[in-house]
Design a binder for these strands. Structure first.
Length: 276
DNA sequence: ATTGAATCCTGGTCGC
DNA sequence: TGCGACCAGGATTCAA
């Protein structure tokens, strides 16, 4: 599942490969990927040139020279592919942009959970879903005080709270498990029950982990591949995610997998104990 | 206001 | 070998 580091990696790859390109044709094979009127989506992007690509948390923001911005969320398995021939796309490709350089930029999504939406440039941050996002790691808005305040009013588990994009944005199932392990916090610990030390440790771990993952080009799990077709390497640095039954790198005990808030959760029961 | 459940999807896995 | 049942999982919607 692409999280902030993976989306940032995709953003950088696409910035190199498609900025400056003009959309000459659009083929939409599965309409439900598009939020809003499909015909308007198509009409507004035909002839438009990509000027730059931004990002907010896990949302990609394709800015066009005609004043429109395409907001794209990859959800579970969405990814972009750049190919020389349309025939190279399989049945999971749902939207194909023909580019002025003759290449094709496609959106592929096996589970069809991803969404694309066109909004006037500058209004994307006002979208309900984006406006409600909490501060994201590695930005001035993400402070230890913001984290403390956000967690203090949540009684549900810290794992569920980290997945909730309203407190901190950009984390998903992989990095939530990893930062909790780094911080020696039990995933089921109520968010408002963290000690001051745990809060400080968690705050730092989130920044550090996200930065390291971005530097590594993200984590490649299952279907995730960035726009260049390259794989990120951060999976080699994961300590608990998908390491069920293996030895905890810190204490040697067995990594457990449980379900928290409906999500598979990996942790070490020995060095991530519940607070008493 | 917060919280939990249901929802969307398909490939993979399991049991027979 | 095949087939039905079940599951994962981010964000949204709805209900409590």
């Amino acid at each position: 599942m692409p999280e902030l580091p993976e989306v940032e990696t995709v953003r950088r790859g696409l910035t190199k490969s498609v900025v400056g390109q003009t959309i000459t044709e659009i083929e939409i094979r599965y309409f439900k990927i598009i939020v809003g009127n499909v015909q308007e989506f198509r009409d507004r992007l035909l002839g438009a040139t990509i000027t730059d690509i931004g990002r907010r948390a896990k949302y990609l923001l394709f800015h066009f020279d005609n004043g429109w911005t395409m907001v794209s969320h990859l959800r579970m398995e969405g990814r972009y592919q750049l190919r020389a021939e349309k025939s190279e796309f399989d049945k999971h490709v749902h939207v194909i942009f023909s580019l002025s350089n003759g290449q094709y930029l496609a959106y592929r999504d096996v589970r069809k959970f991803g969404k694309m939406q066109l909004v006037p440039r500058g209004s994307e941050l006002n979208l309900k879903s984006i406006a409600a996002l909490g501060p994201e790691p590695l930005t001035p808005e993400y402070t230890s005080e913001a984290l403390r305040a956000g967690l203090s009013e949540r009684r549900k588990s810290i794992k569920a709270t980290l997945l909730d994009q309203h407190v901190v944005s950009g984390l998903g199932n992989i990095y939530a498990d990893e930062v909790l392990w780094q911080s020696r916090i039990n995933p089921q610990e109520p968010a408002n029950n963290l000690s001051a030390t745990q809060l400080t440790t968690l705050y730092q771990a989130i920044n550090t982990e996200i930065k390291r993952a971005i530097d590594a080009g993200g984590t490649t799990v299952h279907s995730y591949v960035n726009a260049d077709g390259q794989k990120g390497t951060f999976q080699g640095q994961l300590q608990v995610y998908q390491h069920t039954g293996e030895a905890c790198p810190r204490c040697g005990n067995s990594i457990a997998k449980i379900k928290v808030a409906g999500r598979g959760t990996h942790y070490c029961p020995v060095c991530q104990p519940l607070n008493s």
